[in-house]
Amino acid sequence: MLLITCPWCGDRAEAEFSYGGEADIVRPLSSDDLTDREWGTYIFMRQNPRGKSHEMWLHAQGCRRWFKATRDTVTYKFDSFEKIGPTAHVQSDRRVDQE
């Protein structure tokens, strides 16, 4: 069984995760001005590298948070995991409201 490290939950079975594709894809600022070919390139064309790849993953059956992972597509070995966005909300489910 392959273990994937969720940056919030730790090591979990691969079955708990969903692959989200290539990381760091930048959406065009003015998508209304794109041609159909340019929009299709943005939507469908990806690098698909052999070797080190930066990917998005979702801990679908756990904390339901997205994170970035660096993985070798040849060996399937994960090198690193990174939280996305501000981490202040991570503690929000544990906070006790004070009156």
Rank of each mutant, 00 (worst) to 15 (best):
W66S: 06
K77G: 02
T35P: 01
M1Y: 06
G62S: 08
A15Y: 06
T41H: 09
N48T: 01
M1A: 14
L29T: 14
T73Y: 00
T75E: 03
Q91I: 14
T73H: 00
R46H: 00
V90D: 11
A13L: 14
A69W: 00
S30A: 15
S80F: 03
G21I: 05
H89V: 11
W66P: 00
G40E: 08
G10R: 05
Q91W: 08
T87A: 13
A60K: 11
T70S: 12
I4E: 01
E82K: 14
I4L: 14
W39N: 04
W66Y: 09
G10A: 04
R50F: 02
I84C: 13
F67E: 01
L58E: 01
D36I: 09
T75A: 03
V90Q: 11
G20Q: 04
S31C: 04
D33T: 15
G10K: 05
S80V: 02
E38M: 07
R71Q: 07
Q61P: 00
G10W: 05
D79W: 07
D32A: 15
C63M: 10
S53Q: 04
R46G: 00
W66F: 15
H54P: 01
Q98V: 13
K77M: 09
F78A: 06
D93T: 15
D36A: 10
L34Y: 04
R95C: 13
K52F: 03
G62K: 03
A60E: 08
H54A: 13
C6P: 03
P49Y: 00
E55M: 12
A15P: 02
K68Q: 10
T73W: 00
E55Y: 00
K68M: 09
R95I: 13
T87V: 12
T5Q: 14
K68F: 06
I84T: 15
Y76G: 06
P7A: 05
K68H: 11
I25K: 09
T87K: 07
G10E: 03
H54F: 12
E82T: 13
R94L: 15
V90L: 15
I4H: 01
R64N: 09
E22Q: 13
D36N: 07
E38D: 10
I84N: 03
M1N: 10
L2N: 07
F81W: 14
D93R: 13
D93G: 09
A13H: 11
H54E: 11
D11P: 07
P49I: 01
E38P: 02
G20P: 02
V96K: 12
I4V: 09
T70I: 08
Q98G: 08
